[in-house]
Every structure is written in structure tokens, then in C-alpha cells.
Design a protein around this nucleic acid. Structure first.
Lengths: 129, 129
DNA sequence: TCCGTTTGTCTACGTTTGTAGACTCACTAT
DNA sequence: ATAGTGAGTCTACAAACGTAGACAAACGGA
């Protein structure tokens, strides 16, 4: 029953991206947009949508003879899923290790830094409040 | 020439993991260990090693008739590669968005927090020194 | 010298992923 | 009715992946 562990492939991310930015969309609109942005043929987009429906990542409703698609998993859920995956696989679950690896390679902008500090402060409060 | 964009698959990560923890290893040792930890047959491990060699992720040396394998990419490189990928795909490149998504779901331990603060401080210094 | 063992290479096969053509049914304007 | 169009479904197919058996050359004892 649970649609937990829904992993998305690269191509599927593109489709979801599209759905996340603008909620219920018809196949028509989706194929059009993805045709432009990804250069896909109509079939490609529709196939991906089917697969996503099968996985439970998107839901459909049929108004008359036209199907509309809605995301069933939020971007956050999907992102979190993959992130935890990566964290486990590549950093033995250590977030700080991940962050330090990133900062070692590219400097953070002042903005990012500010944001990160804010996030940590918040996490701290929520954590032991 | 460049062996830049070397993406690793799940199974390949397991092999690299093995190689990263202990440098030059013979196929023998690797198949043994991975047989235990992953339940793979000899062939599976060897096949993966070949593929990794083809990709340039591991190098080999033949002492006599026994091959020894060494990693050609560091864990950091591999991890960074995937992390940037994920960051782009799932968080539009925003590290802070990623961290906040994570902290929203699971509280960080005091330790992690300390470490993260330290990392940020360091990044700050390095950044505009 | 003959055999079992070790080590390396090839081939294989089912599944997943990316990508897309073909077919069909319904609807509409002539 | 009739042909063209829009929409949905099916089938296809190559490349990537996970997994592994088969085969051959070399090695070490009996």
C-alpha cells in the first residue's frame, strides 16, 4: 500500500519537475513542455508518465477523455529519499562529511553561508526544545 | 584523456568501497570480501572490476599472473561527483535547501551540529581570507 | 606427468532506463 | 459518411546494470 521508497530516474525527474512547478496538467501540456525543454517526442513523455503512474509517483484523473496528471510525491519527499540514499552510500550517513566535502571544493557564497547558519540555529532549537 | 565524469552504479560503489578501505588488493581478496559482504559470486565481483577498469575508476597491475587493483578515483571525487549531481537535480543547486530539507525530517545530533558549525566557520574564513 | 585448483576472460541473460514508432478510438468540420 | 486530428495505449529496442556460469591458461602437488 505504502508508496514509500519511490526512486526516480533522471528522465523521470524531468517529468516530475514539470508537474511540481504547475499542478494538474494534461498530457497535452506536458508533452508540449517536455518536448521543448528536453527535446522529447510525445511518446517519450507519455511513456514516462505511465511508468510514473505505475510507480505511484503521479496520479491521474480522467475528465471526459482527457487525462490530467498530478504529482503524488512531493519534491521534498523525492529529494529527501535520494539524499538519504546518497548520504548513506557515499558519506556513511554523515551530513557534516558531505558538507565539508562540498565546501572543500567550492566556496560558498555569503548568502549560502547565512542561510546555512540560520538553518543550523533553527535545527538546534527544534532539536532540544 | 580526462577521467572526469566517472559515475558509479550502486554495485560499483560496493566494489570501490572495498578498494578504498584497503589499497592494493588482489582479485582474490576482493571476491572473497565482497562474497561475504554482498553475497556476490566470484564472477560478479570480477565483472564489476572489469567494468570499473574500463571506466578508468580502478587501475590494475599484474605481478606475475596475479592482478592487483587500485582505485583511480578517490572516494571524495566520487562522492563529490554524485553530490553535485543530486544537488543540481533535486535542489536546483542550493546546498542550504538540501540541508534544510534534511533537518526538517530528522534532527541532527549535537555532534553533527558542532561539526557543521565548525565546517561553516572554516568555509567562511577560507572563503574571504 | 596428470589432476585439481587458482586466476583471468568471455558470454549470457533478465531487468531497468531512455527513447520512440505504430495503432486505435473518438470527435469534428466538410 | 468521411477524413483528419487529438489523445491514449502497446510494442519495440538499444544501452546500461546486476548477476553469474563456462572456459582456458597457469600452478602446485601427488
Amino acid at each position: 500500500m505504502e508508496k514509500e521508497n519511490i526512486a526516480l530516474t533522471d528522465a523521470e525527474w524531468s517529468v516530475m519537475e514539470c508537474l511540481w512547478t504547475h499542478a494538474p496538467r494534461t498530457g497535452r501540456e506536458l508533452t508540449e513542455e517536455l518536448g521543448k525543454t528536453c527535446g522529447w517526442s510525445r511518446s517519450t513523455t507519455l511513456t514516462l508518465l505511465s511508468r510514473l503512474e505505475a510507480k505511484g509517483a503521479v496520479g491521474t484523473e480522467s475528465d471526459g477523455r482527457v487525462k490530467t496528471f498530478v504529482p503524488r510525491v512531493s519534491r521534498e519527499e523525492a529529494a529527501l529519499r535520494e539524499t538519504e540514499d546518497l548520504l548513506t552510500r557515499a558519506y556513511r550517513g554523515s551530513l557534516s562529511l558531505m558538507v565539508s566535502t562540498l565546501t572543500k571544493k567550492q566556496a560558498l557564497s555569503r548568502e549560502e553561508l547565512e542561510e546555512l547558519y540560520a538553518i543550523l540555529k533553527k535545527a538546534e532549537e527544534d532539536g532540544h526544545a
